[in-house]
Computed example of a mutant assay.
Amino acid sequence: MKDDDQYEITDEEIVALVNCDDNTIEDHDQAPAVEPLRVSHNDGVKALETAMKYVKQQEATRVDITMMQRWRDLAAKKWNSSGKQTSIKNFFKQSQN
Score class of each variant (00 low, 15 high):
K2I: 08
D4R: 08
D4S: 12
D4K: 11
D5E: 12
Y7A: 10
E8C: 11
T10M: 06
T10E: 05
T10I: 02
E12H: 07
E12G: 10
E12I: 02
E13W: 06
V15Q: 13
N19R: 10
C20M: 08
D22A: 08
N23L: 07
T24C: 10
T24I: 08
D27E: 05
D29H: 14
Q30M: 07
P32V: 09
A33I: 00
V34E: 04
V34H: 05
V34G: 00
E35M: 01
E35Y: 03
E35W: 00
E35Q: 04
P36G: 01
L37R: 14
L37W: 13
R38L: 01
R38C: 02
S40T: 12
H41E: 13
G44F: 07
V45G: 02
A47Q: 09
A47W: 01
L48D: 03
E49W: 14
E49L: 13
T50M: 14
A51D: 07
M52E: 08
Y54A: 15
K56D: 12
T61C: 07
R62N: 09
I65C: 08
T66C: 07
M68P: 00
Q69Y: 02
R72Q: 12
D73A: 02
D73Q: 04
A75Q: 05
A76Q: 11
A76C: 00
K77I: 10
K78T: 02
K78Y: 07
W79T: 02
N80G: 10
N80W: 04
N80V: 09
S82H: 07
S82F: 05
S82L: 06
S87L: 10
I88S: 06
K89A: 14
N90D: 11
F92L: 13
K93A: 11
K93W: 05
Q94I: 15
N97R: 14
